[in-house]
Design a protein around this nucleic acid. Structure first.
Lengths: 211, 211
DNA sequence: CCCGATACCCCCCTTTCGAGGTGTTTCGTT
DNA sequence: AACGAAACACCTCGAAAGGGGGGTATCGGG
């Protein structure tokens, strides 16, 4: 809920797609209680502009060209624990959503969202609420009970995705092939995958990493 | 080049992201010689609205919820060979671009494009030119000499991506396992992949299919 | 202090993969 | 009629993968 018509909710937009930024600006500026104070196209710009304007709400895409969106969220929240950030993303599985929320995001929306939902989210988050879109929440619930991969396992899986055999992975990570096999076994179990190829597609779909 | 200021270029926007549509409308309507005559969020709507308005230019996203963008392009071009279509996509490898251009698209732009490029493209295509973004053209050139996968090979690879062994693939397609192996060998060769897992990530990256 | 999670290592064994080569039929193009 | 391309099938064979068991060391939290 807006405090009053004289103090509008000040918003920073972070997204590398100029056309999408334009859409966000148009939608936001059409509302009497909202205003866009700055636009950033990179993670670096995002931090600079946040420092300069201290927006009430930051709308942020995770797919930035220069930095990982999650890291930007972390940085902002460390220096400004009161920063309210809403993640706006095309579609990345549950893992990205969990990471973003853990990093301190207050909301998580898909870009395929409607104007109405976007505006509702902005106002809800500004009022101090957390707001995660239903679709995303469902996805989160679905995998909540499941085990997640350790850093090492993700590292192994990434190499496998690029066509490395267990032996090559072992060389790259300076561990034995048997250890790699052990990791692979755990990965298959955790992701309920039939084989390494399946594991890679599942991991991509759930957002463990990208290619 | 616009014919005259009295007859503006009439544009149909097809994209399932309302926010992005808003951005496109704002950018286009800011130009004196351009106007948006309709917006569609699905393939079905796209065809209906095209029939109703006969736009000069159709800006189209490939990732529609109800239909494949390529098929929509084909349909439009069959019934209206003079339809000028510019594809606007997030990022799908060279294969999607080739298919779109073959299906009759006149332009291919990435959504990360600038307003300036977008407007230039619209005017260029309206003037009868073909306009493919530099990044996309580079990608096209890079794989131009390479062999592309046959339908059957894509079919096999899709099943492999979902964790099917050669034997299972054989069962599903009612062919022998040896034949599947033959296909796999060809796939690995054509995509320059180390193994089946690598083949899947390469195919995804180049846009042969999605998961 | 022990426990669980993580990372690491080693053995076994069976199945699957992937690299060879060779051959058919079918189908659309020339 | 002749051609290549594609799909199909059969063969061998070594190298991976993957499923099972065993184990050690570390680290942080209950």
């Amino acid at each position: 809920m807006p405090k009053s018509s004289s103090s509008r909710i000040r918003i920073l937009i972070v997204d590398d797609h100029p056309v999408l930024r334009e859409g966000l600006v148009t939608i936001i500026e059409s509302q009497a209680d909202l205003q866009v104070v700055a636009e950033a196209g990179t993670g670096k710009e995002a931090i600079t502009l946040f420092e300069a304007h201290h927006p009430d709400i930051t709308l942020m895409d995770l797919g930035l060209p220069d930095a990982n969106g999650i890291d930007v969220i972390k940085t902002l929240r460390e220096t400004h624990p009161d920063a309210r950030i809403i993640v706006l993303t095309t579609y990345l599985g549950d893992v990205q959503a969990i990471r973003a929320l853990r990093a301190g995001a207050s909301g998580y929306l898909l870009k395929a969202t409607l104007r109405r939902d976007l505006l509702d989210s902005i106002r809800a988050v500004h009022a101090g609420l957390r707001h995660v879109q239903a679709e995303v929440a469902t996805e989160l619930g679905q995998h909540a009970a499941e085990l997640s991969l350790t850093e090492r396992e993700v590292e192994v899986l990434k190499l496998i995705a690029t066509g490395c055999s267990n032996k090559i992975v072992a060389d790259r990570l300076n561990i034995s092939e048997d250890t790699v096999k052990g990791h692979v076994r755990n990965i298959l179990f955790k992701l309920k995958a039939n084989d390494r190829t399946h594991a890679v597609t599942i991991a991509l779909h759930r957002g463990f990493f990208e290619i």
